[in-house]
């Protein structure tokens, strides 16, 4: 099934979830590694170029994901979840979306602080608007760094919660994220 129903995630939502998850962990690892590259490393220019290119593309994917979420049915929470679990899950999901957007925005503000555009794999340029607030590159850089740590921590919590449902509660919360239905 391509689209969601009230009890099941369709292929599009499932794919979007795992694509975004994979991209975020890859970008985090790449970012964590690239900031300490030495000047003569052959990756010194390539790694940030890929990081920025993938980040911009991911922004497109996330925007599509949010629109998709708005305009299609979202499956109801698994019935066996407690009220507090449902609330915490909802809060975590919303926070993950917010963090993604803030991290991508802050990343954009670092690289465009002098008005330079961001090239996406040389396919197209995203224009820059220059310095919108003082010390933009440094401040946006701090936000980018700490929110990245935050989203990784929060997503690990999100994953731990899913594993708890799978192995301890033995419900179908995690299976559902692979497109499975209740039975």
């Amino acid at each position: 099934m391509l689209t969601n129903s009230s009890s099941q995630y369709g292929i599009i939502s499932v794919s979007l979830h795992w694509l975004v998850a994979l991209s975020i962990y890859s970008l985090f690892a790449l970012g964590y590694w690239m900031v300490d590259l030495t000047y003569y490393s052959s990756w010194y220019r390539t790694a940030p170029y890929w990081h920025k290119s993938v980040g911009i593309l991911l922004f497109g994917v996330v925007v599509f994901r949010l629109l998709w979420r708005c305009y299609t049915t979202t499956p109801s929470p698994v019935a066996s979840h407690s009220v507090i679990e449902k609330r915490l899950a909802k809060l975590t999901h919303n926070l993950l979306y917010l963090l993604m957007l803030l991290i991508m925005l802050s990343g954009y503000l670092i690289s465009t602080a002098d008005g330079r555009p961001i090239s996406v794999f040389g396919w197209f340029n995203v224009p820059g608007f220059g310095e919108i607030f003082p010390q933009q590159a440094d401040r946006a850089g701090l936000v980018h760094k700490y929110l990245a740590y935050f989203i990784i921590a929060l997503s690990l919590l999100h994953a731990l919660a899913a594993l708890k449902h799978h192995f301890i509660d033995k419900d179908f919360t995690l299976k559902r994220m692979f497109g499975r239905s209740a039975r």
Binding site: P48, A113, D114, R116, A137, D138, G141
Partner: peptide, 16 residues
């Protein structure tokens, strides 16, 4: 020293 300007925001961030 924070006013360093080499005409490239990413480089200036690194210089700071």
């Amino acid at each position: 020293t924070a006013s360093v300007d080499s005409n490239h925001a990413e480089r200036d961030k690194h210089l700071r």
